[in-house]
Write a protein that binds this DNA or RNA. Structure first.
Length: 272
DNA sequence: AACGGCACCTGGTCGC
DNA sequence: TGCGACCAGGTGCCGT
């Protein structure tokens, strides 16, 4: 569910409720996430004040006085702000209780997410250190993408979803950015022109920014920190629209497989 | 090194 | 209604 816009939506949703609060207790009901939640994590973060929230790639970072909580939502995770304490559901694996009575509740049916804590500089953390630039910053330019793409043979869709190249472009937004750019998703990366890189970079930025402004994409069950769904789904041009008419030319949207993931494109609009 | 494919896990949907 | 097959927003790791 969560790509960059969904993580950013979550961060913005929870921040006002948790900033400058002290963590009074952490409850881990099920530690079996992608990596086991470290058994020492609850006591390490307990009594620490929350100084800020950040997002790097699809990681939600909660800055504490002495270290950083690293939260990843995986494919099916969500974090919600609760003002009371309803009975935890089946997949409510972690609660962060704050000194103002607010509670952050982490739900993740598939358990592909992660909760980790580090006191080392965050940029040196193994999960963060090798990441490419943020797509919404000036570090991500057409020039950068063009240079990186030379002599690469992989498909362009795979390339822009590679977090070492640029972070935060997941399956939905990769499909959408390629549509907007008129590029065939299986085009070999090395044959993408400079002009096409300009289009691609511009459209990746646009589609992510628009999705953030709409509160992310809710396909099944995504909700932001405030429990509200995202509205970007209605802006989707190709993702999940196999057999439906292209919004631009009416040609029926087709589906490919790209290493076992759905790839959606318009055969008329994406011929480059 | 770069590439493609698979696995991790649960739940929803679809066809029979 | 029940059952099995298949699919899903991410990403680390494996073999080639």
């Amino acid at each position: 569910m969560p790509e960059l816009p969904e993580v950013e939506t979550t961060r913005r949703g929870i921040e006002p409720h948790i900033l400058n609060r002290r963590i009074s207790r952490v409850t881990v009901r099920d530690a079996r996430l992608r990596w086991p939640v470290p058994p020492e994590l609850p006591l390490q973060v307990q009594d620490q004040r929350i100084l800020a929230t950040h997002r790097r790639s699809k990681y939600l970072l909660i800055e504490l006085e002495r270290g950083m909580l690293i939260v990843h939502l995986g494919m099916s995770g969500s974090v919600r702000v609760l003002l009371d304490d309803p009975t935890p559901g089946k997949h409510d694996h972690i609660d962060l209780e704050l000194d103002n009575g607010v509670r952050l509740r982490y739900n993740d049916p598939r358990r592909f997410g992660a909760w980790l804590y580090t006191e080392a500089p965050i940029d040196e953390h193994e999960l963060i250190a090798h990441l490419g630039p943020e797509p919404l910053t000036d570090a991500f330019t057409a020039d950068y993408l063009f240079k990186k793409s030379r002599k690469r043979t992989t498909r362009i869709k795979t390339f822009i979803m590679d977090a070492r190249i640029v972070v935060g472009v997941g399956n939905i937004y990769a499909n959408e950015a390629l549509f907007l750019s008129g590029i065939y998703p299986h085009k070999p990366t090395g044959r993408v022109t400079r002009k096409e890189c300009e289009q691609l970079v511009s459209n990746i930025k646009q589609v992510l920014a628009l999705a953030i402004s709409q509160g992310g994409t809710t396909l099944r069950d995504f909700v932001g920190g405030d429990g509200k769904p995202g509205y970007f789904a209605q802006s989707l041009n190709v993702y999940g629209r196999t057999g439906l008419p292209c919004h631009r030319c009416e040609t029926l949207v087709r589906e490919l497989r790209t290493s076992n993931r759905g790839t959606f494109y318009c055969p008329q609009c994406q011929t480059r």
